[in-house]
């Protein structure tokens, strides 16, 4: 073996590498080729290195240099091709390794609060912003809290306005599912001295067969404010502020008309200017420009007397909304039974 032989074999190997390496199509193939030409064992470079010791001493440095140049040439070829292959492989991975992301996972779906709960929370939060607390009371009430203390004595005509579901406890017709949230007013005033600023949301019951317009179960939100000098103007202003916040519309107007409730005097029906047509008249407001939302009034002195509050020292207002009614208006729901039906297609819509 001579230096010339060594050089010839390295040249031959390099010529071969100049063809093979640029034609390599993967990183793995490149790695193989790199090992074959310049690896530590059984490569062209390794064989040449092994052969150096058999050369005459004078030729050895030249042979070493030749091996070094061979390795550098191969490395340059590999490096150049490696970048190309990496780019080709990255391009290929987009199709080769792809996953269809539209298959999706199906497990994590968001749940839903009932539309009544969402409405209740919205109203609660608005009144909390005005400084109110949220009061609660039992759903099964006694005659005193549901009727008598609210200035509705037995045989009062207002009782026939409210068909009551009674339970078999106490005397006949003494214990009932509350027909409105107003008994929470009584319980609140019985349990804490004024001033009082509360809203009382809750479930209420009437003995009505479920149909498009009636439901045996529905929800109200009652408000009660008792303070030293609270006025009907405060009532009207509070309702108007609330309505503007709820509908996020500072142009909303409120309208109050004389009405009758046994537990307030004076009493008013409350309406807001139609949030859909702004008073022009549309289907939602029955072309009146106004939407009736509930009732309100100044707490009747008889109610104050029933709970031992001096009506000369304190005065107050109360109001009530139907939560289903509010949601029906806002979202165009035609039938109240939708809220009791619990069709998941409805529940999942909100």
């Amino acid at each position: 073996m001579t230096l010339a032989d060594e050089q010839a074999r390295l040249d031959a190997a390099l010529d071969e590498a100049k063809v093979a390496i640029p034609n390599a199509t993967s990183t793995a193939a490149l790695d193989d080729l790199e090992r074959r030409y310049t690896g530590r064992r059984s490569s062209a470079a390794a064989a040449a290195t092994e052969g150096i010791k058999d050369l005459p001493a004078d030729d050895r440095p030249k042979a070493g240099k030749a091996v070094h140049e061979f390795k550098a040439a191969v490395a340059a070829l590999v490096t150049a091709r490696r970048a190309e292959v990496a780019a080709e492989e990255a391009a290929g991975a987009a199709t080769r390794d792809r996953v269809d992301p539209t298959i999706g996972g199906h497990a994590r779906r968001r749940g839903h609060l009932h539309l009544v709960t969402q409405t209740r929370r919205e109203l609660e939060d608005i009144f909390i912003g005005l400084g109110y607390r949220v009061a609660e009371g039992p759903e099964v009430e006694d005659d005193w809290h549901n009727f008598e203390a609210l200035n509705i004595p037995p045989a009062h005509p207002a009782r026939s306005m409210q068909d009551t579901i009674y339970v078999r406890l106490g005397e006949p017709e003494q214990v009932m599912l509350r027909t409105h949230t107003s008994p929470v007013q009584i319980r609140t005033m019985e349990s804490q001295p004024p001033p009082i600023y509360v809203v009382a949301p809750g479930r209420t019951y009437r003995n009505e067969t479920l149909d498009a317009r009636h439901s045996p179960v529905f929800h109200q939100l009652e408000g009660l404010a008792v303070d030293r000098d609270i006025t009907m103007a405060d009532l009207f202003g509070t309702i108007e502020t609330f309505a503007r916040e709820l509908f996020d519309d500072p142009t909303i107007r409120t309208r109050f008309r004389s009405d009758y409730f046994p537990y307030t005097e004076p009493s008013a029906e409350l309406a807001v200017s139609c949030v859909f047509c702004h008073g022009e008249g549309c289907r939602v407001c029955s072309h009146t420009g106004w939407i009736e939302l509930g009732g309100c009034g100044m707490v009747d002195p008889n109610v104050f007397q029933a709970v031992g509050i001096d009506p000369e020292a304190w005065q107050g207002f109360a109001f009530g909304f139907g939560l289903e009614r509010l949601a029906m208006i806002r979202y165009g729901i035609d039938e109240i039974r939708t809220f009791v039906d619990n069709d998941v297609r409805f529940l999942e819509q909100y």
Binding site: Y132, Y197, A225, T231, A233, F236, G237, T238, T241, T254
Partner: peptide, 10 residues
């Protein structure tokens, strides 16, 4: 309609 609009806060 002739009654004003004020807001009472606790």
């Amino acid at each position: 309609d002739s009654i004003g609009r004020t807001v009472a806060r606790p």
